[in-house]
Amino acid sequence: MSAIQEGITLNEDKTLSFGNYEVTEKIKITDFNVDGNIYKIRTHNEVTRLSKNGNLLLETVPGATIHNFYVTEKEANFSIEGLGDTLVTLELEPNTNYSLFINDVNIDKIKTNLSGKINFSTTLSKEPQEIKIEKHS
Rank of each mutant, 00 (worst) to 15 (best):
M1P: 04
M1Q: 03
S2C: 04
A3T: 14
I4S: 04
Q5H: 04
I8L: 06
I8H: 03
I8V: 10
T9L: 07
T9S: 09
E12W: 05
E12C: 02
D13E: 08
K14W: 10
K14H: 13
F18P: 11
F18W: 10
F18G: 07
N20I: 09
N20V: 09
E22M: 07
E25F: 05
E25I: 06
K26D: 13
I27Q: 03
K28W: 08
K28Y: 08
I29Q: 00
I29G: 00
D35W: 13
G36C: 09
G36M: 06
I38L: 10
K40Y: 06
R42L: 09
T43Y: 06
T43H: 07
H44D: 12
E46F: 01
E46M: 05
V47K: 06
V47Y: 02
V47T: 05
V47D: 01
V47Q: 05
S51L: 11
N55H: 12
L56Q: 05
L56T: 06
L57T: 15
L58P: 02
V61K: 15
P62G: 00
G63K: 02
A64G: 01
A64D: 00
A64S: 09
A64P: 01
A64Q: 01
T65A: 09
T65S: 11
T65F: 01
T65R: 01
H67C: 02
H67W: 00
N68V: 00
N68Q: 09
N68I: 01
F69I: 03
Y70V: 00
Y70G: 02
Y70W: 06
V71I: 15
T72R: 13
E73C: 00
E73H: 14
K74N: 15
A76F: 13
F78A: 06
E81W: 02
E81G: 02
L83C: 02
G84M: 07
L87R: 13
V88M: 12
V88G: 05
V88D: 13
L90F: 12
E91V: 15
E91H: 11
E93F: 14
N95I: 14
N95P: 04
T96K: 14
T96M: 13
N97S: 12
F101M: 11
V105N: 13
N106Y: 13
I107W: 08
I110E: 07
K111M: 12
N113Q: 08
L114M: 06
L114I: 01
L114F: 04
S115H: 11
G116C: 13
G116D: 12
I118D: 07
N119Y: 14
N119C: 07
S121I: 07
L124Y: 11
S125R: 05
S125C: 03
K126R: 09
K126S: 12
K126A: 12
E127L: 10
E127K: 10
E130I: 01
I131F: 14
K132V: 09
K132C: 03
I133A: 06
E134M: 15
H136E: 10
